[in-house]
């Protein structure tokens, strides 16, 4: 790959939770996973529930650090993780939350103000944009989250199964906005258990099962293996 923007090198992640006095439960969520993502690529992560997709996405976003191995990414590369329903202050208005979100993506306050206006329009919140987020329905929250993440310019956009939100009209609008970004030079890492979404959006993908890589490569090849296995399991 000529221009690698992000790479995972033998990444392993373990979760430990306290179960009692001096007792801990350990679970290996990601086990020795390696791959590279090129600039402008749309990369999919495929797997069933509990396969470690979201944990891997957090490692790639830089919010979690691996127990061993490393995620290599230039410090100047901006990464934004779009996972719905998180990161909002419920007592602040949608406008204020959008402003904070833009500044976290590296915008100055002055640069962010026109973008915040666009976020308000895209998310179709109307007068609710200036009301506290705690008064929003779950659909409104997801629209605000999606608009804040998609309209800001970041080098890598990491998306965690979010296209299934909102009503049909907004879902279509969201998908179009995302496709528009993808057709440009946006690098996207996309996590889903939906085969259709991965097929439609991603050029390459990684199939993850119980935290381990089953296969990584062009979407068609990975998908063929994935579907074969699924059919075998259905037969059993």
């Amino acid at each position: 790959m000529s221009d690698v923007i992000l790479s995972a090198e033998s990444v392993t992640l373990e979760y430990q939770s306290r179960t009692g006095f001096l007792k801990q439960f350990t679970h290996k969520a990601i086990d020795d996973v390696s791959f590279q993502i090129g600039r402008g690529e749309v990369f999919g992560i495929l797997g069933r529930n509990g396969s470690g997709k979201s944990s891997l996405l957090k490692l790639l976003a830089g919010t979690l650090t691996p127990d061993s191995g490393q995620v290599v990414c230039e410090p100047s590369v901006t990464r934004s993780l779009l996972a719905l329903g998180l990161g909002f202050n419920n007592n602040l208005s949608g406008r204020d939350n959008a402003l904070i979100s833009c500044m976290l993506n590296g915008y100055t306050q002055k640069e962010a103000i026109p973008l915040v206006q666009q976020i308000g329009e895209f998310s179709e919140l109307g007068q609710f944009f200036d009301q506290p987020v705690k008064t929003y329905s779950s659909g409104m929250r997801s629209r605000l989250g999606f608009a804040s993440a998609v309209l800001a310019k970041v080098d890598i956009l990491l998306i965690d199964e979010t296209l299934s939100v909102g009503d049909n009209a907004f879902k279509q609008k969201a998908e179009n906005a995302l496709l528009k970004k993808i057709s440009g030079d946006q690098t996207v890492i996309f996590v889903s258990h939906s085969i259709q979404q991965i097929n439609k959006l991603c050029s390459r993908c990684l199939w993850l099962e119980k935290g381990k890589t089953i296969t990584v490569g062009p979407t068609k090849e990975v998908m063929a293996k994935y579907l074969d296995t699924e059919q075998e399991q259905v037969k059993i």
């Binding site: 901006t78 202050n89 602040l92 204020d96 402003l99 904070i100 500044m103 976290l104 100055t108 506290p132």
Partner: peptide
């Protein structure tokens, strides 16, 4: 973001927290 870019953000978040707390009472 660079180290110094965080200071306007801290200022903004602190101001907004004040506003949100005041609005709640």
């Amino acid at each position: 973001m660079t180290f110094f870019q965080y200071f306007p953000l801290i200022h903004l978040m602190a101001r907004m927290k004040l506003k949100s707390k005041a609005n709640a009472l």
